[in-house]
């Protein structure tokens, strides 16, 4: 796919609840594809409100969202915005199969009878194969594991050929293997020029795969490349007292335990900060100089 890079602009968006209370005040940021951008903030910080305004579910009282310069409504008509919901938003007892769900991504491109064409069927097959769910195509969706469910809805976004893809907490209830598979897929989509916006409270995974971050607490506190924005200082600002801090003191880490740090955690990745940025990094390519420098310091 070689289309012009997509861009998403959120400018001065304020959203009010029915009671007049502001959920989001004067939020602005700018993204252009391909990028994987994390939307980070505590519960109630306005993450989902921001999502909803990008998808056109809520109308801002001021400001506007544009996708490739066009209003959200126009972008939705072009089917370029895709959404991967949280597991709780879906009734898993519905009598629909994996293939049915993926096909729902194509509805906007069908005529009003919604009879799938050959193209629709190929796109669905491609999408399901890409998330390794083709073999499960005839399963009823309630019979899948948490990770498989996530992948089905991701396949729907792929089948839709969305260029702006929003994922709401994609790693909740997902096993480590699927998490890695999803991350790999998102990277491929980034390479194809998609804008991927991931709302997450799983901080540890952010530096792992997101190249940009939007920090949010009732407004946008900051946005930009992960290495600049996703710092201990900024996170403290965004989360206030809601983050637990563990400092590994000089004595415990270096002398006592022979320079070994062990962090145990449940399914969520811990976020580990070291001197000048992140200690743990899977993409170290292009950063050899930092690695060398650190080597020398020790």
């Amino acid at each position: 796919m070689t289309e012009a890079p997509f861009d998403l602009a959120v400018e001065g968006v304020s959203v009010a609840y029915a009671n007049g209370h502001l959920a989001l005040r004067d939020a602005s940021f700018h993204l252009s594809g391909g990028t994987i951008c994390a939307l980070v903030g505590v519960n109630g910080s306005g993450k989902s409100t921001l999502f909803k305004s990008i998808m056109g579910f809520v109308k801002p009282v001021s400001g506007h969202v544009t996708i490739n310069g066009a209003a959200v409504k126009v972008a939705l008509k072009r089917n370029v915005v895709a959404y991967v919901p949280q597991a709780e938003e879906v009734d898993w007892d519905f009598p629909v199969s994996v293939a049915d769900v993926a096909m729902m991504g194509r509805y906007g491109r069908m005529n009003f009878l919604r009879i799938p064409s050959a193209t629709d069927k190929t796109k669905v097959e491609e999408a399901l194969r890409r998330v390794s769910m083709w073999d499960f195509r005839d399963r009823q969706i309630g019979e899948l594991s948490g990770g498989q469910k996530k992948r089905v809805f991701l396949a729907r976004a792929l089948a839709q050929e969305g260029r702006v893809i929003l994922l709401d907490e994609p790693f909740t209830g997902v096993d480590v293997k699927t998490e890695q598979a999803i991350i790999d897929l998102l990277r491929e989509l980034r390479a194809e020029g998609c804008i991927i916006l991931v709302s997450t409270h799983n901080l540890g995974s952010v530096p792992e795969f997101c190249d940009q971050v939007v920090l949010i607490n009732r407004t946008v506190l900051g946005y930009g490349p992960t290495s600049e924005v996703f710092t201990e200082d900024n996170l403290s600002k965004a989360f206030g007292g809601a983050l637990r801090h563990f400092h590994f003191e000089h004595s415990t880490v270096q002398d006592h335990d022979g320079r070994a740090i062990r962090v145990l955690t449940d399914d969520e990745r811990p976020l580990v900060f070291g001197k000048d940025g992140h200690l743990e990094y899977k993409d170290r390519e292009g950063r050899e100089d930092i690695l060398r420098q650190r080597e020398e310091e020790t």
């Binding site: 998808m55 579910f57 009734d91 629909v96 509805y107 906007g108 839709q160």
Partner: peptide
């Protein structure tokens, strides 16, 4: 019968229906 797929989609996943501008 003709509109069954659309009616099913709004019942199943409203968000998707909105995102597709149905």
């Amino acid at each position: 019968w003709v509109k069954r797929r659309d009616l099913l989609l709004v019942s199943f996943d409203r968000g998707q229906a909105k995102v597709l501008a149905l």
